[in-house]
Design a protein around this nucleic acid. Sequence first.
DNA 1: TTTTACACTTAAACCAGGTGAAGAAAACCG
DNA 2: CGGTTTTCTTCACCTGGTTTAAGTGTAAAA
Lengths: 192, 192
Amino acid sequence: MFDVLRNHIEKKVSLTDDEFAQASALFTIRKLKKKQFLLQQGDVCRYESFVVTGCLKSYHTDDQGVDHVLRFSVEYHWAGDLDSFINKTPSSFNIEAMEPVTLLVIDEPSLDQLYQCVPKLETFFRLLNQNALIATSQRVIKNLSIPASERYHLFLQANPHLVQRIPLKDIASYLGITPVFLSKLRREKPGF
Amino acid sequence: MFDVLRNHIEKKVSLTDDEFAQASALFTIRKLKKKQFLLQQGDVCRYESFVVTGCLKSYHTDDQGVDHVLRFSVEYHWAGDLDSFINKTPSSFNIEAMEPVTLLVIDEPSLDQLYQCVPKLETFFRLLNQNALIATSQRVIKNLSIPASERYHLFLQANPHLVQRIPLKDIASYLGITPVFLSKLRREKPGF
DNA sequence: TTTTACACTTAAACCAGGTGAAGAAAACCG
DNA sequence: CGGTTTTCTTCACCTGGTTTAAGTGTAAAA
């Protein structure tokens, strides 16, 4: 369980046994059933969560009741709303388990404490957010410059595993199109 | 000149004179004329740049030759391509001065060194990227959930100063619409 | 002073993608 | 297994936004 987390962290910074012990003491295990919520829009996000098994989606429900998927979090990735977590503001996201999920969660005071005790972990989370920022910026540009059909095929290539696991309507939502239109795309350009 | 940078940093973390001296020794002053490039698509981004005066745009030119603006960097903000800067890969962005610009620039080895000597500055840049990630994520959701006309008015409200400084076509590009359509929007819903 | 260049507007034809409704196919659950 | 719910598809029609192309205003270059 915790060794998965250690493995994940040590891909970016190396830790002594003692340092990792300090860290793991601050995480707790949490399980969710399919369709359970880790966070509901309007609530404050109290935890950053490392996904050990399963898959979650983070999505915003707009005033017309339409969902827009920001990201999927699968094994060895993180789930949470950074804005709400840091600033203690009501979140504008739902985070929902798409499958039974096992998480290692940490709250904000503990994470702060961890940064003090083990500065290497501040570096780790800095790198994590740096990569997330890079990926999100690329997504903005792709959404602006690439038509939906191509965005769909790029998504398929980049996430062949995900497509088997999650409903198409959620992929459509992630891509910024309707399920109806995605269906049309699949009919027109099959294969690939 | 450098006091502007210090002021900016101390909004997030406080520094001793000595700590700031170590930092400022690693930055150098750079000036650009209007229309000069800080970075050209395809080159590796060697510097993170703090904007003292002026305004720049970061944009990607797609295979059809169309520009897509990722961000504007004005006074007391930063310019650079994080992906290219960190990973030393050819950048997919141009960064161009829209006005005469004065910058304080730092290269990657120096920044790394700075993180070692003054850990508080690692915290500072972590917070900076954290905020950028939050803002960029919100932009993804807004682009997916809000129609162009509303996005335009939100942009006006949020950046009243910018609109006076930069061409409308660049705002259109930032919003993900054509200048022609932006012009139509302005005609239909004037005022505000 | 004239020329060139670029930003902005207008209008009309066009298309990528959305809407609503309704059925077929899967997936879920007792 | 059988019934319910959810997902996926199809079709007919609609709209927000693009494209192309022409015209105007302005500022800088020559």
